[in-house]
Design a protein around this nucleic acid. Structure first.
Lengths: 215, 215
DNA sequence: GTCTGTATCAAACGAACGTTTGAATGTCAA
DNA sequence: TTGACATTCAAACGTTCGTTTGATACAGAC
């Protein structure tokens, strides 16, 4: 047994290994044999604990991905609570920091966004759950936070477009590390993440049609 | 033979069908049999014309994807030429229109961005080519167009981050149609695309640290 | 001890995969 | 008409896939 497998059940190891492999390679490119080998268990374990490969994937998404999304949302809430106000500047900064520097390790964050990108590109049953339980509530929450600070003429759709645009940047800078690194010419280190947060906050903030007295 | 296959060679049909299927399902999820059935030719045709499945994919990317990227770049150039100046407003508008309303049909555009997202998520040999021959030149060209209009203190990295942010929005709103449609509550019709272009231009423009006299 | 249920295992299942083969076509110059 | 070449075809190749099976090990209850 490798050291990171001590004290864990076969079920937990399967979920953990499956998440890493599915994120790296995609559902179809990962075989059950590859998963069970990496989890140091028998081939039949997937069928015993989860019924089949597809159900393993869905359980992984529900039990691991969703809880991580929850941790990010909680971190956003804490960040915002530490701010003096709920101005758009505070909201965007709290959001960008939660997503880019937040509670996840670099590896976790990479996996997290790889998985959701794969779901967006080729949706499974997991996608519906994510949209309804994570994305919609998040976006509507943000929309309500921003609304009082936007000009009265701005309708809901335009507000949502603003939120989606912020989200698109966060998503892109997280999952497209490879091309971004190649284009900017250096790695994704901590100082760069700081610059990234700063950039997203500044870029998004000035991109929004704010009233003048709301920073 | 279906009507859209008249007057085409087996090779061309294979490339076309392969592109659609690879974009929809991803490389691993598409079998050679599925491709050759859809192309109305024999199973062995892939091996005869391209050697193997992987080489078919690479040829498809080189011959079809790259040429489409070229068409988009050409459209951007034409859009910009029709403008009175090369101000950031003109550049961003020309870019957003080329990418969102440009020379591609809706289907082509969907496939185009699905394919590049797949390459970003799980790079193959095709990815290196795209970065070097399409993305880098495009981004550096945009960076040079923007540079004279930005404050002197802005270094190259921040300029690139601005360009990448614009790109991230375009990319997101093209490939993530499904979640976007669900969140905004209606389809991706022509009026919405107009609103999208308008939004991206306005959002990006005010997000950039421009000198005051450059619109 | 015996029984019961949980968990793991090696081995095999049929199906689908990418690829290869060799014969059967059609085409066109000699 | 013949020969050379390009293309298509049905059939089979060996491999890997997801899944199933039946035996085995081991716990705690009675």
């Amino acid at each position: 047994m490798s050291p990171d497998n001590k004290g864990t059940t076969t079920r937990e190891r399967l979920l953990k290994v499956a998440e890493t492999l599915f994120a790296q390679k995609g559902y179809d490119a990962v075989s059950v044999r590859e998963i069970t080998n990496a989890a140091h268990c028998n081939l039949a374990a997937v069928n015993y604990h989860f019924g089949n490969k597809k159900t393993l994937y869905l359980h992984m998404f529900r039990e691991r991905w969703m809880s991580r999304a929850q941790r990010i949302r909680a971190c956003f809430g804490e960040n915002l609570a530490h701010c003096a106000d709920t101005s758009p500047a505070s909201v965007i900064k709290s959001l960008a920091e939660a997503l880019i520097k937040g509670p996840l390790t670099d590896e976790e964050r990479l996996r997290h966004f790889q998985l959701i990108i794969r779901e967006m590109t080729k949706p499974t049953e997991a996608f519906e759950i994510v949209v309804e339980e994570t994305m919609k509530p998040s976006f509507e929450g943000l929309e309500q936070l921003f609304r009082p600070c936007l000009h009265e003429g701005i309708d809901e759709e335009r507000t949502l477009l603003n939120v989606l645009s912020i989200f698109s940047m966060v998503l892109y800078f997280n999952f497209a590390r490879l091309p971004v690194s190649k284009i900017i010419g250096h790695a994704y280190d901590e100082p760069f993440k700081d610059r990234l947060v700063q950039h997203i906050v500044q870029f998004s903030l000035s991109g929004m049609p704010l009233k003048e007295n709301t920073l």
